[in-house]
Amino acid sequence: MPDATIQDTQGQDGAYNYAYLDEQTKRMIRRAILKAVAVPGYQVPFGGREMPLPYGWGTGGIQVTAAIIGREDTLKVIDQGADDTTNAVSIRRFFARVAQVATTTHTEEATIIQTRHRVPETPLTDGQILVFQVPIPEPLRMLEPRETETRTLHALSEYGVMQVSLYESIARHGRIAKTYNYPVMVNGRYIMSPSPIPKFDNPKLDRSPALQLYGAGREKRIYAVPPHTPVKSLDFDDHPFEVETWSESCALCGSTESFLDEMIVDDTGKRLFVCSDTDYCEGRR
């Protein structure tokens, strides 16, 4: 690639560098991403920057997206499966403005999909990149508060304590009651938090042809699952991993295979189940 001139790297309004972050920051983040891809599931620290939105709104995901986005990319942003919620709309507009990229709501058209809490229902393909927003990257955090200790546990693959938490769940509820942020083993080596996606989406991570990048802005960690990498949800031999099921189907598109949101539609408590993935749902109607 020829040297980028200042003109090339400037955004539309000239006040900001292309894709908001300065080039040195993007290089730093790209290095972290490369390391994360090389060691699947390992949390790589990076120098997280202040972003023009609060922590918890996707600062980690935005920084990852900003570091990998180019003018030829087509961006899709989803929040809880929907393309039209405040957070998704704001982030999409942000990149349309600072990176002049095309945006879309169609999963198949997107080259980069930034997401919070869901993996699209439409199967992903080669060349697509899924960017997750992660609040708490450390899967062992609730079990072991010390960072030095969790790092040691990862380094030595000492994951008994994670299994203890699943045991406890069965002892108390009769089954593994964790439904989101369900811990996974990546490539047989690192236990990873898949971010707060429902466990319904966990099987989609396994050997996915798309590259998965996870960015945690507050905790300043990046981790990744390269394409076609085995991702196994933890379980017991006699209590195997299972995903959620619904007796209803989507009230709008009739799907029985997608993740459904329950909605209360009037004051008498009438309930409706609809697809959480709006693009998938619209495509079927």
Partner: peptide
Amino acid sequence: GANIGERLMAVGARHYG
């Protein structure tokens, strides 16, 4: 039960029963 089982799980026991 989880307290007693921790060492077993740490060395790879994966059968709840």
